[in-house]
Simulated assay, not measured.
Amino acid sequence: MGPQEQLIQWLQATAQGDKSAFAQLYKATSGKLFAVSLQLLRRRDWAEDVLQDAFVRIWHNAADYHTDKGTVMTWMISITRYRALDLIKTRQFKAEHIELDPDWRADDTEEESVSLPRERVKLDDCMSALEAEHRQSIYLAFVNGLTHHEITSHTGAPLGSVKSWIRRGLARLKRCLEA
């Protein structure tokens, strides 16, 4: 039995009220779901709250899962991401107050380490020069991994605006970095 089949089996048993199967499902997936939550929220305490809430929803909605919704893990990640976005909204956490985290970038290689500090400063300067909507949308899309639709839910802006902000912001960012 493959990992997907095992998750389906545990989820189906969970839908029938099997607490042992739910415990196995939790044990197998909680680390990944916590990482998703922490990546979005950047606060361990909030990520823990979201994880707990996500598993409560998974317990109550296990019978609603169907394979046409994707893999079990994709379905569970979706629940977790939406719980995280809801928490951001309920705590009136505004994305425009998020500062770029210097640790979000990939690790440097030895050859790149000499030129990267200068490039990072330039990137931060160019990001700071963008309009707030452009900066926020780019950050949510590329750092937090939100889709265009998730950004519209998060910001309340129309889908067309979000797409334009990202497109224009990336064009301005490119011009700034090439200057």
Rank of each mutant, 00 (worst) to 15 (best):
L85F: 06
R172H: 04
S78V: 03
Q39E: 11
S161N: 08
Q4R: 10
V50F: 03
K27E: 15
I88V: 12
S164H: 03
T147L: 12
L140E: 02
G31I: 09
T74L: 15
V114N: 12
I58D: 04
D18Q: 13
E5W: 06
F93Q: 08
Q52G: 12
Y26T: 06
M76T: 04
H134N: 09
K32R: 14
S115V: 13
H149R: 09
D103T: 11
S115C: 13
M73C: 08
E150Q: 09
R168S: 06
E119P: 03
L123D: 02
E133N: 13
R172N: 06
A95T: 02
P158E: 11
I58L: 12
I138T: 01
D64A: 14
L130M: 08
A179M: 10
A106N: 10
I8C: 13
K163C: 04
I8L: 14
G2A: 12
R57E: 14
M127W: 05
K69V: 08
I8F: 08
E119W: 10
R43C: 10
F142I: 03
G156T: 01
Q136V: 15
R83V: 09
L123M: 14
D125P: 01
Y82T: 08
H134P: 00
H66V: 12
S128E: 11
W46N: 10
H66T: 15
H154Y: 03
A179T: 07
N144Q: 12
E119L: 15
A84Q: 04
H134F: 01
V143N: 04
D53A: 15
T109M: 13
H134I: 01
D53H: 10
E5D: 15
D49T: 07
S20E: 15
R135I: 01
A106W: 02
I138A: 05
F55H: 05
L25R: 02
V114W: 09
S30I: 06
Q6G: 10
L25M: 09
Q16A: 15
D101E: 08
K69P: 05
Q92P: 00
K69L: 15
L173W: 00
L87D: 05
D45L: 10
L11D: 06
D125R: 01
K89T: 07
A62Y: 02
S30L: 10
D108T: 08
P158N: 09
I8M: 13
Q52S: 13
G145V: 02
A132F: 04
R43V: 07
D124W: 09
W75T: 05
